[in-house]
């Protein structure tokens, strides 16, 4: 147990606007930008920060099922977003001593800087029970301190939350895969008129690269195809119950865990639309429409998949159908990225 030192008696609550968002990190990034005087929406932060991704890692297990992610590595959105928009920001990657990490946080709060943290979800006291899992890539912003308690803005929740010193140390030093190790980040200053055009261009270019150009089979569009192939085989290989559980876990990944629905596809489409309007680019608007339709297909996939989990009467056909659907989704998404690749912004 770590005992708070003398600093802990001070109180400072920064006037910070908590807005709920679909995705924890892009929400936190957008809120931090807004605090520093630059209004950007959550999808904009997500798109510029290159948040979209897909990878299917059957050899890694998360809660007894193959690991699937729809997003990029933790801290990518904040790092890339600030880099592309030319914002002066600091990221402290790992701090060995928890006491020092908390002291650094306290100093920031006293200076009036809201600070983003990477935390583990399992011991987060205010989280709803369905999120109780060993997932260490969650983000929240601390914006105030009152005695032994911290005021926390977690974009998954409707309202700001309060967490005690001891609990905050626990989640900042959660152990396991992708351990946060006390990572913290904040914005120092923002240039008044950032170059959105270049930032959007860079963000889109990287996303396109990640989704179709990485020469490795399990990531990007190729990963979706690989998953489609595996979904078909699950029933024979694993039996009814396990196949159903695996499928359920994919759906949870896509819909439940703070994705804004359909594994961030809606957020990315919304970004494309916003960018299209901002730069008055018809190509972007068209791709945003395509992305929206693909996202609707994802949602239909999760809906049918959930029905399949409920009623396992004719599963053989169903898994085949779901697999075909995934293949179709992969084709549609590839079209979007190929088109984006050719658009001149």
């Amino acid at each position: 147990m770590i005992i708070p030192d003398m600093m802990s008696t001070e109180t400072n609550i920064i006037k910070y606007n908590h807005r709920q968002a679909g995705h924890c990190e892009s929400g936190a990034t957008s809120n931090l930008f807004a605090f520093n005087g630059l209004e950007i929406s959550e999808p904009m932060a997500f798109g510029i920060g290159n948040g979209l991704f897909f990878s299917y890692l059957p050899f890694l297990k998360l809660q007894f099922a193959p690991m699937i992610t729809f997003r990029n590595f933790p801290n990518m959105v904040f790092r890339k977003g600030t880099e592309y928009l030319g914002v002066d920001a600091t990221v402290r990657k790992s701090i060995k001593d928890p006491k020092e990490a908390m002291k650094a946080l306290d100093e920031n709060i006293m200076k009036g800087i809201p600070t983003g943290l990477q935390v583990g979800v399992f011991k987060l006291t205010f989280f709803p029970p369905e999120y109780r899992m060993h997932y260490n890539m969650h983000n929240l912003v601390v914006f105030g301190k009152e005695g032994n308690n911290y005021h926390v803005s977690d974009t998954v929740m409707e309202t700001p939350q309060i967490i005690s010193y001891e609990d905050l140390v626990q989640v900042r030093y959660a152990k396991g895969a992708f351990a946060p190790k006390g990572k913290m980040y904040w914005i120092n200053s923002i240039v008044p008129d950032p170059d959105f055009k270049t930032a959007i261009k860079k963000g889109i270019k990287r996303t396109v690269y990640d989704m179709i150009k990485i020469p490795f089979p399990l990531v990007g569009v190729k990963g979706i195809r690989w998953l489609a192939g595996d979904v078909k085989k699950w029933q024979k290989k694993l039996g009814n119950d396990k196949a159903s559980f695996y499928l359920g876990q994919i759906l949870r990944m896509a819909e439940e865990f703070g994705t804004g629905g359909a594994g961030y596809r809606y957020i990315f489409g919304s970004f494309l639309q916003e960018a299209g309007v901002m730069l008055s680019n018809d190509g972007l608007l068209e791709t945003s429409d395509m992305m929206g339709k693909t996202a609707n297909k994802w949602r239909e996939f999760t809906y049918l998949g959930a029905r399949n989990c409920k009623d396992r009467s004719k599963p053989e056909e169903d898994y085949g159908m779901l697999s075909n659907m995934l293949r179709e989704i992969a084709n549609d998404e590839e079209k979007v990225y190929r088109k984006l690749d050719k658009i001149i912004i």
Partner: peptide
């Protein structure tokens, strides 16, 4: 939680709400 939606014709929309009922099954299963 906050969810995004898309209607054909080109409008994105976001709404705060509960998880849809269909998700109850997969959560319960896990």
């Amino acid at each position: 939680e906050l969810f995004y939606y898309y209607q054909d014709g080109g409008n994105y929309d976001k709404k705060v709400g509960f998880h849809p009922e269909s998700d109850a099954v997969i959560l319960q299963q896990a």
